[in-house]
Design a protein around this nucleic acid. Structure first.
Lengths: 338, 338
DNA sequence: GCATTTGATGAAATCGATTACATCAAGCGA
DNA sequence: TCGCTTGATGTAATCGATTTCATCAAATGC
């Protein structure tokens, strides 16, 4: 590997000049600049990142943590993150925290040790040590939250309007004529679930159907979707529609319906959330709330790069557009029930 | 951040001694060692990675490239990789190459610049510049291939026996009494597809059904699965079973069946490949070849760490066990057809 | 009891960049 | 023409570790 000294020697200048040509070209006279560029090209020189990092404290890496990389929703967001990051010259360090606090702390310490310039976290939990960092640095803390939004964390974020999105889904069901609607939420510690539940409650209230809501709590997984859907369906007054806070839970719900010999949407309508790639290929194709995963990924990187560029700023919480995609899993309820 | 100098000062020793305590403790007298440890603890000292890397050329990072991170099969393998890597003290740099050679080269250059200690690649293509590296360094090249295996690449790898696995799937169909079987492969440039196709051909030959095979080529995606399944189903002599080289293509095939009003497995049996998390929740639950994704991820890291530890070695190609999971998408063909 | 080995530690070079400061020549105004 | 500004470049310190070599004391052998 050629070093900056090699380039300097070849171009007949000092290492300082080479460095300037590469990072502040306007400070170097044109003929010198050309000589240096030629030397760089002929030696195939690339600055050593470790040396640069040691000197400048910039790693050109961003750390991205996810609660579960094997979740297609998250992996699509990550895809957007990777795309935007690599376009901006940053490498992505991936941390799969598996919902475990120990792993979250482990990755948090990477940021504290400055092994990455910034952190994008897709969960809802910010490790304690990083919360301290936010308290100390304020809006300049290089931490951004993706998909979720908790004002009290004090970090910038990009996400959809979850309350509104959930309300849209409910409105769709009410418009079809549904009365008794079952809702399967995610863990209520996450603001994403709380916001969506608020949207559900608001829509129900608007239609005077608050008492007809049946709420169950899942954890976004297929399995809890199946379990909770089963519980709701086995109630004495069966809901004619189910709204799940993730497509995976909707897949579980579909399974629960099948096991009970119930048809979707004839007997029970079903709405999911996320619009993962598989949603449209389920049977029936799933009506769901589409999240702009790539856009969330891009935006979250943009927010982080803004912070890293040193613009003083305030925290920014960017709301991106969602879209209720109506497919074939929702229909008007059967006539002649209570 | 405390530096090694701070620790040295606090412990009343030189920086060299601190370094020794941390990396070769047996070379330091016990009382000194204790003092240094105390100083380390009280200052919360962690060695600066950039400085360490600059000096030693070791980054403690491994680079993992995937053709498509949003593919649940790959993201599950990545999960295994991340788990094993972080357990061994390595961080994971993620590269989503999107099947694009330019991106593959971009990440290849990260390895050449030594911004990672090694590379795990999950595709089948090894960028040209890295092939040169393999030619030069032989089995010590810190590059490992996951899921795929091409002997001519000259790198270690972990994967299932794809030929055997595909043959198992075909045997299952033949055992059920199927005669005309449609097969939807992946791109034939990838050894994974070729190996599986070889298994298909071998099984067909064993049963004297070579002429009854109908082969179509997809690209592992849902869309090509639907298209190619459609083409096979619309042939004059319709296959009574389809074998897709990925679960995603099987999902597409399921969609094609539905659109044609064909029942699975009553009219057409279906076998997938990979056993992604969703396979068992399709309707009908998909019979498929299960790959040990986590294990592949772990193994591939183990292989890489072995190379990094300097054991001279030869390349090792590890075959992991697959498993044909029979669910409800396969059954005996209807009576009374050709 | 003296020479020599052994063990513990420190001094200093090194990895490869960036950047504050120094230097020097050319250009400018009066 | 002289002093001063400006622009271009070089010198050297610095980032924070690792590691070679030197030093010195204690232990060992004869």
């Amino acid at each position: 590997m050629a070093t900056i000294q090699d380039v300097a020697r070849k171009a007949g200048v000092s290492a300082a000049t080479v460095s300037r040509v590469l990072s502040a070209p306007e400070r170097v006279a044109e003929p010198t600049r050309a000589r240096v560029h030629a030397a760089v090209a002929s030696l195939g020189y690339t600055p050593n990142l470790a040396a640069k990092t040691l000197r400048t404290l910039r790693t050109e890496k961003i750390l991205v943590t996810v609660p579960d990389i094997s979740n297609p929703f998250f992996s699509q967001v990550i895809r957007g993150v990777e795309e935007a990051a690599s376009a901006a010259g940053y490498a992505v360090l991936l941390g799969d925290t598996r919902h475990e606090e120990a792993r979250e702390e482990q990755y948090a310490s990477m940021l504290r040790r400055r092994e990455a310039d910034g952190l994008i976290f897709l969960g809802h939990r910010l490790p304690a040590t990083l919360a301290e960092m936010v308290a100390a640095l304020g809006p300049r803390t290089p931490i951004v939250n993706g998909c979720e939004f908790s004002p009290e964390l004090g970090v910038s974020s990009a996400h959809i309007d979850n309350e509104r999105a959930a309300a849209d889904a409910m409105e769709h069901l009410y418009d079809l004529g549904h009365v008794r609607v079952g809702v399967i939420t995610g863990p209520l510690v996450s603001p994403i679930s709380r916001d969506r539940l608020a949207g559900v409650a608001a829509a129900a209230a608007r239609h005077g159907r608050t008492a007809d809501l049946a709420i169950a709590t899942g954890d976004f997984s297929i399995e809890t979707g199946a379990d909770q859907a089963g519980a709701l369906l086995d109630q004495p007054t069966r809901p004619t529609a189910l709204f799940c806070f993730s497509d995976e839970m909707a897949m579980g719900a579909l399974d629960a319906l099948r096991r009970r010999g119930l048809a979707c949407p004839a007997d029970v309508s079903l709405v999911g959330f996320d619009d993962i790639r598989f949603a449209r290929y389920l049977d029936p194709p799933l009506t769901t709330v589409s999240q702009p995963t790539a856009q969330i990924g891009h935006e979250v990187v943009r927010l982080l790069l803004d912070i890293l560029s040193g613009r003083p700023d305030v925290t920014r919480n960017v709301t991106l557009p969602h879209d209720l995609v109506v497919r074939a899993s929702t229909a008007a309820p059967r006539q002649g029930r209570g």
